[in-house]
């Protein structure tokens, strides 16, 4: 099978920013990135959209539904939500949308902090293979990958983002 054309992560960031711009309110909208790729994207969006509320970050290890099969993730990081979740307008940000299980876990984690007024989802790419009824609010790119492959976001020393295809 020929390798699929990998999307340009920098171009997708720009497209995502422009897709979101008409819909966000810099004084009200808050971003929460999912570790690790989603945090990088959230930092970009935060700066480009000029949002006032500092972005949060979430590690979904505590709410993963495969804990009983795979145990606790080795590099669990601390979730940081530097704003009041109660009544907030929140955009969950991730790099790639796949089964939807990570998003479910992130929402469970988020709700441990309070009840947001609204939650949206922004991702750079949707690679198909959904196992839960989860759909992104903003997503500038879609492709279909076989289950054995993983689309991973990487960040270079100069902060440039790029995608890499990995075999599981």
């Amino acid at each position: 099978m020929p390798a699929p054309q990998l999307p340009d992560a920098e171009a997708l960031c720009t497209a995502l920013i422009e897709a979101m711009r008409p819909h966000v309110d810099p004084a009200v909208t808050a971003l929460v990135g999912i570790h690790t790729g989603g945090v990088w994207v959230a930092e970009r969006l935060h700066a480009a959209l000029g949002l006032k509320i500092p972005p949060g970050s979430i590690d979904v290890s505590f709410h993963r539904d495969d804990y009983h099969q795979r145990g606790l993730h080795a590099n669990t990081r601390t979730s940081q939500i530097p704003f009041d979740v109660e009544g907030a307008h929140i955009v969950i940000v991730d790099d790639v949308l796949y089964t939807g299980r990570t998003i479910r876990a992130a929402m469970n984690e988020l709700f441990d902090y309070g009840r947001p007024a609204r939650v949206d989802l922004a991702v750079l790419s949707d690679r198909g293979g959904r196992e839960l009824p989860v759909a992104p609010t903003w997503c500038p790119h879609a492709l279909t990958l076989p289950a054995a492959q993983m689309l991973a976001l990487e960040r270079a020393d100069d902060a440039r983002l790029s995608f890499r295809l990995m075999e599981k």
């Binding site: 290890s61 505590f62 990081r77 601390t78 979730s79 940081q80 979740v85 441990d112 309070g114």
Partner: peptide
Amino acid sequence: TRILDTAAPFTEVAEREVKKLPL
């Protein structure tokens, strides 16, 4: 070291509205 590293994110759970995880 892994136990100590793993404990770090658990310290933050005490600061949440809901101090409970489903593990």
